[in-house]
């Protein structure tokens, strides 16, 4: 198990929160809520050690399109980068729903 933290600049204030996914095999859960500053803070807890660079890549891609000032908690149970991105986008989508 490994814990990772990332910070991204943000421009958009959030007012809602969203939760998607489940900590099941090959999956993850994402908890997204407003942050109090002008940044997005991501904390990842993952069952698979040694993939910090891969996480950074996935999050870089996500934050290339997402500009919300969010506190994001990710609890991961061995999801592929594709599934991680999908869940993040679902959480972002749920904010707009």
């Amino acid at each position: 198990m490994e814990r990772l933290s990332f910070t991204y600049p943000a421009r958009e204030r959030l007012t809602r929160r969203a939760h998607v996914g489940v900590v099941g095999s090959g999956d993850l859960e994402v908890l997204l809520q407003p942050s109090s500053d002008q940044h997005a803070h991501v904390s990842v807890t993952t069952s698979v050690d040694g993939f910090a660079a891969v996480w950074k890549n996935v999050l870089d891609r996500f934050f290339g399109r997402f500009e919300g000032a969010a506190l994001i908690e990710i609890n991961d149970f061995g999801a592929t980068p594709g599934v991680v991105l999908l869940r993040l986008e679902q959480a972002a989508e749920a904010l707009r729903a």
Partner: peptide
């Protein structure tokens, strides 16, 4: 006591298992 209430298992992380919110 939904996921944002933050009541997770105190025992799983001690054993290296990722806890669900």
């Amino acid at each position: 006591l939904g996921p944002f209430d933050g009541l997770k298992s105190p025992w799983l992380p001690l054993q290296g298992v990722v806890a669900q919110a």
